[in-house]
Nucleic acid binder design. Structure first.
Length: 424
RNA sequence: GUGGGCGUAGCUCAAUUGGUCAGAGCACCUGGUUGUGACCCAGGAGGCUGGGGGUUCAAGUCCCCUCGCUCACCCCA
């Protein structure tokens, strides 16, 4: 170890080093392309918001708000634990609903939750968040879900889609009461967590992983049987739409949400390859949220978030196409004069849109060739005393075997000698 | 907040019952006749074995404490 390098990144905070960044960029590139095809526009949002925003939207009693937020207590501001609240805040603040009745937005960036880190779960993590604000049409639900499926498919992900409806303020309370009475009858047979849940968040009992609890809830009342006519109709159209587009899904009447604002359609794209962090993307409808945050009444919304760390983990373990780092041209100078000329050419070639690498440490030609190879250079241009003398450098094709040619020591000649496909 | 696993070179890991055990592979650097990569060969650099204390003639190797990492629970993307 060098000098006291004692300061390390915080627990749950990770550097994404250059070798991994390629994968992240690939992920973002594919995602932006898909979002664009579905005509979503990017919005960039602040990372810090008033604490109140999250308390009101996510819910005071949720775990996120109760114990996982990074809050500056003396300032009443919080590092965002998710993006939907900010998205809706911006939607209201800028009157976006006036500019365009239905807004289709996405944002990409870091989120912060103070949880114990584990596989696929960090304290600073990254999400791609997609939202449609201003439409209640079930076709929007279908389109959004289909987009998620298309994105994951294009990334080569093996995931499955689970779907449920949570009802609305008109029908959920009735169901909740039924469920509570069902749970209470079996209270003694539940695990300790579920005993606690039965009062704090009874719906959570439905997705407990303890086998004995699962046995108890197999016959629990299903929300789907308690949906009001409007919700039932809406959910039916969502399912029909998914079938029309050929998006496979599985009904999961036990799937619930951790955030208060969700209603009606909820869905998760899950994988079996990430340990306990199975959800790579999840979301749902939140028709009351805009109004709760002070926006216009009757402003429905739906969206979902994609966990980028989780996707990167999957890409890595599924050994998906890992893009390689490479440069077009490596300039190898021999001796002070040669590297001096090379230095000038490198700059000129970069101005001509070629990516160019060069060594400044006075390495031997052999060493520079090795560097060029490692950098993934397509071509190496060699300039030494002899070349300065003749006015022509040696252009070597690194992909072929021993293919070399002489090229005048000028950026114009060099650019002509290189394949046009390299120009970026 | 609760539980389990683990901490030896940049990375992945070895080191018999505590006694040349501080190593290998990869990566890195330099060479293999004057100025040419990938493969190969030869050298080299790199670790106070996470930190502190204890037991012992002797400790990566045993005990205690501490810090860190990791997986899982809770919860969630």
């Amino acid at each position: 170890m060098e000098i006291a390098l004692k300061i390390k990144a915080l627990k749950g905070f990770k550097d994404i080093v250059p070798g991994e960044v390629l994968l992240w960029q690939y992920l973002e590139r594919v995602a932006r392309d898909v979002f664009d095809r579905f005509h979503f526009r990017e919005i960039r949002l602040p990372i810090l918001e008033e604490t109140e925003l999250f308390a009101r939207s996510i819910g005071e009693a949720t775990d996120i708000v109760e114990k996982e937020m990074y809050t500056f207590v003396d300032k009443q501001v919080t590092m965002r634990p998710e993006a939907t609240a900010s998205m809706v805040r911006a939607y209201i603040e800028h009157g976006l609903y006036v500019e365009k009745p239905v807004q289709r937005l996405f944002t990409i960036g870091p989120m912060f939750r103070h949880e114990r880190p584990q596989k696929g779960r960090l304290r600073q993590f990254h999400q791609m968040d997609v939202e449609v604000l201003g439409s209640e049409n079930p076709r929007v639900d279908v389109e959004l879900i289909a987009m998620g499926a298309m994105l994951l498919d294009e990334l080569g992900m093996q995931v499955s889609l689970e779907l449920n409806s949570l009802g609305c303020p008109a029908c959920r309370p009735g169901y909740r009461a039924e469920l509570i009475s069902y749970i209470d009858k079996r209270h003694d047979l539940l695990c300790s967590d579920c005993k606690r849940r039965s009062t704090t968040n009874p719906l959570r009992v439905l997705d407990c992983k303890v086998p004995s609890c699962r046995e108890q809830i197999v016959d629990a009342p299903s929300i789907l049987e308690y949906l009001c006519d409007q919700c039932k109709d809406h959910f039916g159209k969502v399912q029909a739409g998914l079938e029309q587009l050929g998006v496979p899904y599985r009904l999961n009447k036990f799937m619930v949400r951790g955030l208060d604002y969700y209603c009606r359609t909820t869905f998760e794209f899950i994988t079996a390859d990430l340990g306990s962090q199975a959800a790579v993307a999840a979301g749902g409808r939140y028709d009351g949220l805009v109004e709760i945050l002070g926006g216009p009444k009757n402003s429905p919304g739906i969206g979902f978030a994609i966990g980028m760390e989780r996707l990167v983990l999957l890409l890595q373990q599924q050994q998906a196409v890992i893009p390689e780092d490479e440069v077009d041209l490596y300039i190898a100078g021999i001796g002070e004069q040669g590297s001096r000329k090379g230095f000038e050419l490198a700059n000129a070639m970069r101005a001509r849109k070629f990516s160019v690498a060069m060594d400044h440490e006075g390495r031997s030609l052999k060493s520079q060739m090795k560097q060029a190879n490692k950098a993934g250079a397509r071509f190496v241009f060699i300039i030494g005393d002899a070349e300065l003398e003749s006015g022509k450098g040696i252009l070597r094709n690194m992909l072929g075997n021993e293919e070399q040619q002489e090229v005048l020591l000028s950026a114009a000649a060099l650019a002509d000698a290189l394949p046009e496909s390299l120009v970026s």
